[in-house]
Amino acid sequence: MINLVKNEMLKIVRKKRILVVAGIIAVLVALFTYSQFREIERRLERFGDVDWRTTLQQQIIDTQNRITSSGISDEWKSELQLRIQQQQYYLDNDVNPMEPGAPTFVRTFAEHSINLFLPLMVMVVAADMVSSERSAGTVKLLLTRPVKRWRVLMSKYITLILSVSVIVVLFGLLSYLISGLIFGYQGWTAPVITGFNVEGNELNTNTVQMIPQWQYLLMEFSLVWFVALIVGTITFMLSVLIRNTPAGMGVMLAALISGAILSSMVSSWESAKYLFMINLNLTGYLSGQAPPIEGMTLGFSLLVLTIWGIAALIVSFAVFIRQDIY
């Protein structure tokens, strides 16, 4: 099996997939670093060198004013309400939610990438893992070796898991290294508050814990990794089912984007919470965002994603083993 995984890794490395992904991540990180840098500069210009409490207080006031504007949806309103309560909690506990430094940048960047950007990167690797062998015809050679079909597919899947791990870790490393050039590399031990419980419109702070940022990052990245893995698995299934790589990618892309859109507007469609793409924002549970649909919890989302992942795997193997190759 190790030999087979080596083969698959060889293909991914030679196709320069991981390099491409790393390149895209690097460019994006540079962009976001720059934009955040500008943002900070602008704030400096406007308010002078104020400490973070003042800024946070001002953000709270601004949000309060936004809530009172007419024409704002109820959902948005309650989300803003939650944000205020959370920011107030940070303020009351004298914890800076945006401790300057690369780790904080990595944290927020990962938070924003979990439901679209990273899944897309995973797709780059996963989408053609099987379908490219079919469209290039190499599958004929692959499947006429004295190796059972399920082992061939398993080696591909293991390679996918490994590649996803590489991508997620590279994502963390690159964003740390690049953003650190501007923000500095300190801030690993800065406290971060997690464990907010959202109950209706209220923020429950009973279960809150304050942990050092590196621990938070580890938790966050493991969740990011899990999401990437599930998205990868589903893409993998599509790659088995659909011979045409672009078509498979299109299907996955549509699902991901619709998930991103739906998340902000499905609160009244209860059963949508069983769709995998609604459950991608796992880090939201850590940072205490309101879930897209009431009643969703970290446990629930993990379960839904796991079930989708397992189902996708079963379908992949069942189809791949039986398929006639023409």
Binding site: V5, L10, S165, S222
Partner: peptide
């Protein structure tokens, strides 16, 4: 290829550990 393999296995272990811990 070998370096990527080793790096990926390490990454995988780190992420598994993180997930378990989370």
């Amino acid at each position: 290829v070998q370096m990527t393999l080793i790096f990926s296995v390490l990454s995988f272990l780190l992420m598994m550990f993180g997930l378990g811990w989370t």
